[in-house]
C-alpha cells in the first residue's frame, strides 16, 4: 500500500516533480504512465527512499519514507531503472547477496532463492556468472533479488524496457501473479500498450504533475477517445497544444 501526497523534487533549476499525489492499493496493479522525462522515475525514487522529497510526504504500508527509510525499505521490493547486477557473481549469488542484506540466512534464504529461480524460469543460468547474461536474464535476476525478502509492496521502474516478447510476457505474468497474491504493485512505463494490458489503476504523470488517474475505463470516459491510447494522447496533447 502506497500513499503519496503532493510530492515535489527539484535538481538545481529543474523541477523534476512538482506535485504528485497517488495511491496504490494492495492487490492492485497501479501503472505510472507518462512520456520520457515526466517525473516517473523521480517519483519512484522518492518512494523507495533513495531521494528525499523537497515537499510532500509518502507512506509505504503506513510508514513515512522520510522519517523511517530503513523500515520502509524492508517493506519494499524495488527494481530501479536500468538496474545492474554483479557480473562476477552467478545469478544465484546475486540474489543471495540481497537476501543477506535483508537479514535472511541459512535454509530460509536458500529456499527463497530456489523458489525465485524456479518461478522466474532461471534454472538454466542460475549458477552461471552474470557476465554474459542477456538483457532478459539480467532483468530476471534483478527482479528475483527485489523479491527475495517477500516484500508486501513492489516498485518497478520500466521493468520491460529492452526485453523481447517472451521475456516481456514472463515479467507481465509475474506482475499479475504478485497482484493475485495480494501484493501492491506500482510500476512505471512510457508504453501505452503495456499499461493498458496490465493495470487496474493508472496514474498519468506529465511535467511533474498528475494529469489524470483512475481505472483504464474511467480515464477513457473522462478524456474521451476510442482507445486508451487516444485518451492518453489527449491528456498530454491538451498540455502540448496538439489536440
Amino acid at each position: 500500500m502506497i500513499r503519496a501526497e503532493s510530492l515535489a523534487k527539484r535538481f538545481g533549476p529543474v523541477e523534476a516533480v512538482r506535485d504528485v499525489s497517488l495511491e496504490a492499493a494492495d492487490g492492485r496493479i497501479t501503472g505510472l504512465l507518462g512520456p520520457n522525462g515526466a517525473g516517473k522515475s523521480t517519483t519512484l525514487r522518492m518512494l523507495y527512499t533513495v531521494l528525499r522529497p523537497d515537499a510532500g510526504r509518502a507512506e509505504v504500508d503506513g510508514i513515512d519514507v522520510a522519517l523511517d527509510p530503513l523500515a520502509a525499505r524492508r517493506h519494499l521490493g524495488v527494481l530501479p531503472h536500468g538496474s545492474g547486477i554483479y557480473p562476477q557473481l552467478s545469478a544465484r549469488e546475486n540474489i543471495r547477496f540481497y537476501g543477506r542484506l535483508h537479514g535472511l540466512a541459512g535454509g530460509t534464504l536458500e529456499r527463497r532463492v530456489d523458489g525465485l529461480v524456479e518461478r522466474l524460469g532461471m534454472t538454466d543460468f542460475a549458477d552461471r556468472r552474470a557476465k554474459g547474461f542477456s538483457q532478459g536474464q539480467r532483468t530476471k535476476v534483478a527482479l528475483a533479488r527485489a523479491l527475495v525478502h517477500s516484500p508486501r509492496t513492489v516498485l518497478l521502474d520500466e521493468p520491460t524496457n529492452g526485453l523481447d516478447v517472451i521475456a516481456t510476457r514472463a515479467v507481465r505474468k509475474l506482475i499479475r501473479d504478485l497482484r493475485d497474491q495480494g501484493h501492491c504493485v506500482l510500476f512505471s512505463s512510457h508504453v501505452m500498450q503495456e499499461v493498458a494490458a496490465l493495470c487496474d489503476e493508472i496514474v498519468i504523470i506529465d511535467r511533474g504533475v498528475v494529469a489524470g488517474s483512475g481505472t483504464p475505463r474511467q480515464i477513457q470516459q473522462e478524456f474521451g477517445g476510442e482507445t486508451l491510447e487516444e485518451s492518453f494522447v489527449r491528456v498530454l496533447g491538451e498540455r502540448e497544444g496538439l489536440a
Binding site: R73, R74, V78, P80, S83, P87, H102
Partner: peptide, 12 residues
C-alpha cells in the same frame, strides 16, 4: 554498472 541504486534500496 547501475548496481548502486538497487544496493541503496536495501534496508541497511
Amino acid at each position: 554498472r547501475g548496481s548502486l541504486e538497487p544496493l541503496l534500496t536495501a534496508p541497511v
